[in-house]
């Protein structure tokens, strides 16, 4: 029971983490029709930004803001310098260019910070754990959940209930009409890209205290993020939220329970081997099942 409770909270925490990255990615794809592999680089930039700020004595909340700002600034530079030229190109070109950006940014960060992982501490106030339904749970992970849910709520409000959100939604489904109405679509796109940068930067900054802040950290989480946006339906923020939670739950519970369940049937060693393999592929199997059932994801946005 204790294990179940702990794993449920773990799922929620991983889910909101994935959502922070996936929401930006899905917005950019849904609205701008751009595949941005460099989202992981923005995440890394956010983490390095926050770690550097924290190392220079900046209070933790401000370090998080600084990380998000770094992600935002990098996203704007990326959009203006490169991505803007890719809107009319096909997806292969976009993949090639943004993949190049990954390599470039990795080397750049390695030159500036070196290849050694950077240390980022958990602030004293957020260390330790609290008792949650009988489980001592790390405070910091609860903070991550809080940040993630706040961002999800904020995005919901922004996209669903503001003028700019309306334009973003309209831009995703009826781009030509929005342009015809005289909206500065170029500016709107820069805004969306910057927003994606803020989300990725914030995600990177938030995980600094629990992950290794090092060159290449973005690529590790990128594939799972793509699974999330494909399952959720490309372009749908709501879909990204639901899918992030589902993928996280399947991943966490798979890792926690599959080996144990298999141990009833196989020898412990076989069960651990087989279970490890099965839990590693579980999210991809889930994606395949979803795509068979709903080829355009759980919450597809209206077609252009």
């Amino acid at each position: 029971m204790q294990l179940f409770v702990e794993q449920s909270i773990n799922s929620l925490q991983l889910g909101v983490m994935l959502f922070l990255l996936a929401s930006g990615l899905t917005l950019v794809f849904g609205i701008m029709n751009v595949i941005n592999l460099a989202q992981g680089s923005l995440y890394m930039i956010g983490a390095f930004g926050a770690a550097t700020a924290a190392a220079h004595g900046v209070p933790f909340p401000l370090a998080l803001v600084f990380g998000a700002a770094c992600g935002c600034a990098a996203a704007v530079v990326l959009e203006v310098a490169l991505v803007r030229r890719l809107y009319e190109r096909d997806h292969l070109d976009q993949v090639l260019v943004t993949f190049g950006v990954i390599l470039f940014v990795n080397e750049l960060v390695a030159i500036v910070f070196g290849r050694s992982p950077v240390f980022m501490t958990t602030p004293d106030a957020l260390r330790g754990s609290v008792n949650l339904l009988g489980v001592p749970y790390p405070v910091y992970r609860l903070v991550i959940i809080g940040i993630g849910l706040a961002v999800a709520g904020g995005l919901y409000g922004l996209i669903g209930h503001t003028r700019i959100g309306m334009l973003v939604r309209a831009g995703a489904t009826h781009r030509d009409m929005v342009e015809a109405l005289g909206v500065n679509v170029a500016l709107l796109f820069t805004f969306v890209f910057a927003l994606a940068g803020v989300l990725a930067g914030l995600a990177g900054a938030t995980v600094g205290p629990i992950f290794s802040v090092s060159v290449g950290m973005g690529e590790q989480i990128l594939i799972t993020t793509f699974v999330v946006i494909v399952v959720g339906g490309l372009g749908s923020v709501r879909g990204a939220f639901v899918a992030a939670l589902l993928v996280a739950t399947i991943d966490t519970f798979g890792r926690a329970y599959i080996p144990g369940l298999l141990a009833h049937v196989f020898s412990p060693v076989t069960a651990e081997n087989l279970g490890g393999g099965l839990s590693a592929i579980s999210i991809y199997v889930f994606m395949a099942i979803v795509l068979v059932w709903r080829p355009r994801g759980l919450f597809p946005i209206a077609t252009r």
Binding site: Q2, L3, I221, F253, R255, A256
Partner: peptide
């Protein structure tokens, strides 16, 4: 990158 599931198993 995330070891929360493994840590929960160790605690358990």
């Amino acid at each position: 990158t995330d070891f929360s599931a493994e840590i929960a198993r160790i605690r358990d």
